[in-house]
Simulated assay, not measured.
Amino acid sequence: MGVALAIGCVFIALVAEGPGAESAVNRVSTIVIGLFFALLTVRFAAVRAEPDPKGLTVVNYVRRRRLAWAEIVAVRFGSGDPWVHLDLADGSVLAVMAVQRADGEHGMNEARRLVDLIAEHGEAADPDPGHRRDG
């Protein structure tokens, strides 16, 4: 999709006719805008969460992060959340944009699968032994 968008904008910039079409600024800006949106499309398509026996790789729009299973304390997918959030052992929270509420039942199934994977591969030790987590 990103390639088609870039090619389409370059094509339009090169063959457009009419008022302002001969302007180099208009042609270059059309190409630059097309390339920008193509890059954005590629970044949206790259969003994913890849589990393996050692941990989870989360690729969001801008950032990629590798987590060991022991770093993940809990999975949250509240009714108002657009995507899954991971509570991490260091106290931070990481969004997993690959598992979205907009995906309906598929998104819910993927969130449950993530919970199962964390339970299977081991959660981080509770930093407060007197604290009880209700999952």
Rank of each mutant, 00 (worst) to 15 (best):
M1G: 04
V3G: 02
L5N: 09
I7W: 13
C9R: 06
F11Q: 09
F11T: 14
I12D: 10
A13V: 01
L14F: 13
L14S: 14
L14C: 10
E17S: 15
E17D: 15
P19T: 11
G20V: 11
A21F: 09
A21M: 12
E22A: 15
S23Y: 03
S23C: 09
V25T: 13
V25W: 07
N26M: 14
R27I: 07
R27Y: 09
S29R: 02
G34I: 04
G34T: 05
L35A: 08
F36I: 13
R43N: 05
F44Q: 06
A45N: 12
A45F: 05
R48C: 07
E50S: 06
P51K: 01
P51C: 00
P51N: 02
P51A: 02
P51Y: 03
D52Y: 10
P53L: 03
P53Y: 01
K54A: 13
K54M: 07
T57Q: 09
N60P: 04
N60C: 05
Y61P: 08
V62W: 10
R63F: 04
R63L: 11
R63I: 10
R65E: 11
R65N: 02
R65K: 14
R66E: 15
L67M: 07
W69M: 06
E71F: 07
E71H: 02
I72R: 00
I72V: 11
V73A: 13
V75D: 01
V75P: 00
F77Y: 08
F77D: 00
F77G: 02
G78H: 09
G78F: 05
S79V: 15
S79N: 11
G80I: 13
D81I: 11
P82H: 00
H85C: 15
L86H: 01
D87I: 14
D87R: 13
L88F: 09
A89F: 01
D90A: 10
G91D: 11
G91I: 15
S92G: 11
S92A: 11
S92H: 04
V93E: 05
V93W: 00
L94F: 02
A95C: 02
M97K: 01
M97I: 00
V99G: 03
Q100E: 15
G104W: 03
E105F: 04
H106T: 13
H106V: 12
G107I: 10
G107D: 12
L114G: 04
L114Q: 08
V115N: 04
L117A: 07
A119E: 15
A119G: 06
G122H: 06
E123I: 08
A125G: 14
D126W: 01
P127G: 10
D128F: 12
D128E: 13
P129Q: 07
H131M: 14
R133Q: 07
D134F: 14
G135Y: 12
